[in-house]
């Protein structure tokens, strides 16, 4: 049903989305925690920066990534001095681009979940002698579990659906940067509408199931919260 190229693209996409989601959960959680708890004047600007990929056209992000990853860009200079060459057209470059692109989809649900915990449990923990690090790992993270679930799913799904950034920095290398969305685009451009249809249908079914699981889970966890209250 799917050609070898399609299958390669599907597995590459899943690998990319998994890597990006794991990185984002590790990096995004402390950031979300800070955003949820801080009174710093930087809260507004940092929050806005995190949310930027929501409103920017992916081509803007992709274009600036192409410039910063290039040999004269700041990231390109660093990677070259580390003997890594430049990162455009590589899987690593794609990971960096996707982490930036999917950042708000992970940070915002986590931030909401952390804010929903409120001050009370943390104050209680503090009076019992828990250090800030203790409170983060043994109170905040367990209590924000539904937030982690939503964040992981949205981050994963959004990375799977990424197109513009990959198109700008990917270079369309099979098994390295040719993800499903690019493969579909290529099929359409090459007038191979049957192949495009099959892959596109797969994406629709996948995305629907992902969203269904998020909404299904939300309903369940709300019920749990309610039953705690009553």
């Amino acid at each position: 049903m799917f050609s070898e190229g399609d299958v390669t693209a599907i597995f590459l996409t899943l690998r990319l989305a998994t890597t990006v989601t794991l990185i984002l959960l590790v990096l995004g959680a402390p950031l979300a925690w800070w955003l949820a708890r801080t009174n710093s004047r930087l809260k507004g600007p940092i929050g806005a920066l995190v949310a930027l990929p929501l409103v920017l056209p992916p081509t803007v992000l992709g274009f600036y990534l192409l410039l910063t990853l290039g040999p004269n860009g700041p990231i390109g200079q660093v990677t070259q001095s580390l003997d890594l060459g430049t990162l455009a057209f590589s899987y690593s470059g794609l990971v960096i681009g996707s982490v930036l692109y999917s950042l708000p989809f992970v940070v915002q649900p986590l931030q909401n979940a952390f804010e929903a915990i409120g001050d009370r449990p943390l104050e209680v923990a503090a009076t019992l002698g828990a250090t800030p690090i203790d409170r983060y790992f043994s109170i905040a993270i367990p209590m924000a579990k539904p937030g982690f679930f939503t964040a992981a799913i949205l981050g994963f799904a959004h990375t799977v659906g990424e197109f513009g950034v990959v198109l700008m920095i990917g270079g369309n290398i099979p098994g390295e940067t040719r993800v499903v969305s690019v493969q579909i685009y290529d099929h359409v451009e090459a007038l191979a509408y049957d192949e495009a249809n099959r892959l596109a249908l797969l994406m629709i079914v996948f995305s629907f199931l992902v969203l269904l699981s998020v909404y299904g889970f939300r309903k369940k966890s709300q019920r749990q919260i309610l039953s705690f209250g009553s």
């Binding site: 192409l66 410039l67 990853l69 290039g70 040999p71 004269n72 430049t86 455009a88 057209f89 198109l167 700008m168 920095i169 270079g171 369309n172 290398i173 685009y185 290529d186 451009e189």
Partner: peptide
């Protein structure tokens, strides 16, 4: 060593930004 642009405009862009 080959990277592919979606069209000749993007191919030019890859070279102009010295990524290729």
């Amino acid at each position: 060593k080959m990277v592919l642009g979606e069209n000749i405009v993007q191919t030019y862009q890859f070279v102009a930004t010295e990524n290729a």
